[in-house]
């Protein structure tokens, strides 16, 4: 029994890091542009398929191919932003959120159906030579690919944190998120910053999608699942806190895995229960900074 518990805790941490990486893109986009892109999960799905096909057709190693699937998502994100979301950007915040929800749901459905047409409903995994390999620590089995994915997710989150804290553009992004009008008065082209943030969010979804495809699997309908997880993590972690997003992801992953031991049928309900609890008790998120 203790090994079972340890095993599921570890599984929870491994998947939780991916929840964190999936959510951080959504959080970045929402924090800066106030666009709530509920098609974020579909972007992640496309990232997963990009690396699946790169591997299947061209033999590109999924880990080595992360930059490629990110690049693909940069292009897709750019098109999505220019065609649809950029039209909302001047609306007041509330209208922006409402309209972006509609657009996002619509786009999500469209992308899902395109994926179904092109690639069938089959559930697909990337079967590299090292796919099934595991190592054992204290009786807990650890798949290499998932551990590598965890490390990569950490690296991405750290890199994003450094980018936002240390670089001029990163600071401009944070400034725009806090007060776009004041940012404009600094000579910052806020529309450029919005576009950049959206594209960056899409690229992060691409990376997360690759890690999901390599450690788990991809299918056309996976998007909604990942959007939902991302939203739960976003609410838990608070907007604008990368560390909070990571911790939120880990908490969600671990709670779900723990719940799976005892009440396996309800594991996904647990996440939603946390979502509602956090909203009731601490609406700024567990780690969200207060204004001031």
């Amino acid at each position: 029994m203790p090994t079972t518990v340890a095993q599921s805790l570890v599984s929870g941490i491994l998947v939780g890091a991916l929840y964190g990486l999936a959510a951080v893109g959504l959080s970045l986009v929402f924090g800066v542009t106030k666009i709530l892109n509920v098609a974020h999960g579909e972007l992640l799905m496309l990232g997963g398929y990009a690396s699946f096909w790169l591997f299947t057709l061209l033999g590109v190693d999924p880990f080595g191919g992360i930059p490629l699937s990110m690049f693909a998502l940069v292009l897709i994100g750019l098109i999505m932003y220019q065609l649809f979301f950029s039209r909302l950007i001047k609306l007041p915040t509330e209208d922006k959120i409402r309209n972006s929800l509609l657009i996002g749901f619509g786009l999500g459905l469209i992308l899902q159906n395109i994926a179904l047409r092109l690639w069938t409903a089959d559930n697909r995994g990337i079967t590299t030579a090292y796919a099934g390999a595991t190592f054992t620590v204290l009786g807990v089995r650890l798949p290499y690919v998932r551990v590598a994915s965890l490390v990569i997710a950490f690296v991405f989150l750290l890199a994003l944190q450094l980018f936002l804290r240390r670089t001029y553009i990163g600071k401009a992004i944070r400034a725009t998120a806090q007060d776009w009008e004041a940012a404009t008065l600094m000579g910052i082209n806020v529309h450029g910053i919005y576009r950049l943030s959206f594209v960056l969010g899409a690229a992060l979804a691409g990376a997360a999608g690759t890690l999901v495809a390599v450690g788990y699997s991809v299918e056309p309908v996976m998007g909604m699942h990942w959007t939902l997880k991302s939203l739960i993590v976003l609410v838990m972690g608070g907007i604008g806190s990368i560390a909070g997003t990571l911790v939120g992801g880990l908490i969600l992953g671990v709670t779900e895995s723990a719940a799976a031991i005892w009440i396996s049928n309800y594991r996904h309900v647990i996440g939603l229960a946390i979502f509602i609890l956090v909203l009731l008790i601490r609406p700024q998120g567990l780690f969200g900074a207060k204004e001031g």
Partner: peptide
Amino acid sequence: QVPEGGRIFTGMSVEENLELGAFT
């Protein structure tokens, strides 16, 4: 322009605020 109320970036350090002033 210094807008009404200043509108400084409260979540950032004093020095970061000044750096952003020199964004152009």
